[in-house]
């Protein structure tokens, strides 16, 4: 099954909020070998002006990949997950993510470009608080390799 160019422009609306946990930030920070005390210690984060521990710069991938999963799971997308290669990634932070945030994500399929027998799909996740404040924009390009 090939990737439909009609996917471009599709928007997947926000689902249930993602609740950012203090322990999840600590776990993720340890997993990327981050050592800044602001990821682990509420007082150290407070000294930098944060209400709680602050997420590492790539933490939002957890939230963005949940949104991407909606697209990959959509039977109309024709994406075989086993053929997906992560080609590039960008995070733009409008403000840092901290523990306690309740975040919702709207996923936009920006472009679909045929490449060989496959396609390069660029998605954009717009992440906001449940109160409507914009927190982060993540952009990912996924290369779906064609069948050999």
């Amino acid at each position: 099954m090939s990737i439909s160019p009609d996917l471009a422009g599709r928007v997947y609306p926000a689902g249930d909020p993602y609740i950012v946990g203090r322990e999840k930030i600590r776990e993720f920070a340890a997993a990327v070998k981050a050592t800044s005390a602001a990821h682990f210690d509420v007082e150290a984060a407070g000294a930098l002006g944060y209400a709680d521990v602050v997420a590492p710069p790539t933490f939002a991938v957890l939230i963005a990949q949940r949104a991407d999963a909606q697209l990959i799971a959509d039977p109309e997308s024709g994406i075989d997950f086993s053929r997906v290669v992560h080609a590039d990634q960008r995070f733009t932070h409008h403000r840092p993510i901290v523990a306690g945030d309740e975040l919702v994500t709207e996923l936009h399929v920006d472009t679909v470009r045929a490449m060989g027998g496959g396609a390069m799909i660029t998605t954009r996740a717009e992440i906001s608080t449940t109160g409507g404040r914009h927190v982060a924009t993540t952009i990912s390009s996924l290369l779906v390799r064609g069948e050999e």
């Binding site: 981050a34 800044s36 990821h39 602050v54 590492p56 710069p57 590039d88 995070f91 733009t92 840092p96």
Partner: peptide, 12 residues
């Protein structure tokens, strides 16, 4: 300050 990184991108 981890929160000072306002944009970060890469190609793999």
């Amino acid at each position: 300050d981890p929160g000072a990184v306002v944009d970060y991108q890469t190609r793999f």
